[in-house]
């Protein structure tokens, strides 16, 4: 199938090179690019200067053009409104050209979804939202995504010439990205000037735990943990595993954990090697936030909890009996080195 003049664009916010959160997205888009002969792939990476981000993509990603879109006053944690201005300039002036059809993809997450919608409006396109797969047909784009609390997978089809979405492929293991040849790497100096924001004050954070994104071990608590005390034990277990702490939506509602640590359909998507789920029943809404490649170990007092149907290892028991002993043993192992 040859589809003429399709330009696939990936928009990547700035992230320091060591994080590499975007590797999976780039790999997924490279697969899509390879499946659509004649398509062009442009990867736009925002950065405050050249040389801060290495242009990398899977070896199979033939012909991709990597754009370092440079804005000197850009901060690593720029808000979505700022990113939208910069991406708009990069898309409008340098990248999209006169391609007949454009598919613009962003990383999954609240900021990515906001950006996809905002840019779709600005470019008179459609946003398909949070997609797990995208298919390109001769006259339309089809995004597959979860809906109704993760209980159904739906295909959304649009014939818009300009289509935006976030992409988080489920269960894919990303190939190791390789540096792109120098001839494929270009630089755009963005003209947008970012003024200091005097109306915004950062509040001191009491959350010193490692972030969920990129964590290789995540310890998650659910309603069954029943309060802050349980989360203090979970934090100790997470710390002794060098892991990150997360929770389900009800635990955020209850104030046991901040919304930045919410995992699930309405929260973060995590892809650790290990997810230790404590007091989590295993609803589809929650499991939608955990990669299919992740090994789940579950502790729950209910032997019928659905989490055990997806866990590799399970413990039926009361967290009050198990977690203190577990934390003690893990901390002892850590002390012994």
């Amino acid at each position: 199938m040859k589809i003429d003049a399709l330009r696939i664009v990936v928009l990547l916010p700035f992230e320091p090179a060591e994080k590499r959160d975007h590797n999976a997205l780039v790999a997924s888009v490279c697969e899509l690019h390879a499946a659509v002969p004649g398509s062009a792939l442009h990867i736009v990476q925002l950065a405050p200067a050249t040389g801060l981000v290495e242009a990398r993509a899977p070896a199979s990603c033939d012909g991709a053009i990597w754009w370092n879109a440079v804005c000197p006053s850009l901060a690593a944690d720029a808000p979505a409104g700022t990113l939208a201005r910069l991406f708009r300039e990069a898309l409008a002036a340098q990248v999209t050209g006169d391609a007949q059809r454009r598919l613009v993809l962003l990383p999954r997450g609240a900021a990515g979804e906001e950006l996809a919608a905002t840019l779709a409006w600005d470019f008179n396109g459609e946003s398909l939202g949070r997609c797990q797969r995208i298919r390109v047909e001769p006259e339309s784009f089809v995004g597959q995504r979860a809906a109704f609390g993760g209980r159904v997978l739906i295909d959304l089809r649009t014939q818009a010439r300009c289509c935006f979405a976030t992409l988080q492929q489920q269960g894919s293991v990303s190939p190791v990205p390789q540096p792109l040849p120098q001839a494929s790497v270009r630089t755009i100096e963005l003209l947008t000037r970012l003024e200091p924001d005097h109306d915004t004050q950062r509040l001191e954070s009491r959350d010193a735990m490692p972030r969920l994104e990129g964590a290789s071990v995540v310890v998650g608590g659910g309603r069954g943990v029943q309060g802050v005390e349980g989360f203090e034990w979970l934090a100790r277990v997470a710390a002794s595993l060098d892991g990150a702490l997360g929770g389900s939506l009800p635990t955020v509602d209850a104030g046991w954990i901040p919304v930045s640590r919410q995992i699930g359909q309405s929260g973060k998507f995590v892809a650790p090697r290990l997810y230790f789920a404590v007091g989590i029943s295993g609803t589809l809404q929650h499991l939608a936030g955990v990669s299919a490649d992740t090994t789940i170990v579950a502790l729950n007092s209910d032997p019928e909890a659905p989490i055990f149907s997806v866990a590799k290892v399970g413990v039926v028991g009361d967290w009050r009996d198990i977690l203190p002993l577990l934390a003690e043993r893990l901390e002892e192992r850590r002390r012994r080195g």
Binding site: L128, R157, T158, L284
Partner: peptide, 27 residues
Amino acid sequence: PISLGAVQAYTPAPREGACRMLTGAPA
């Protein structure tokens, strides 16, 4: 501008093997 195509009930992808339960006293 956007229409609904195929719809399927979502079933979690099967993971490796059955769950191995750790039994015994809490310790």
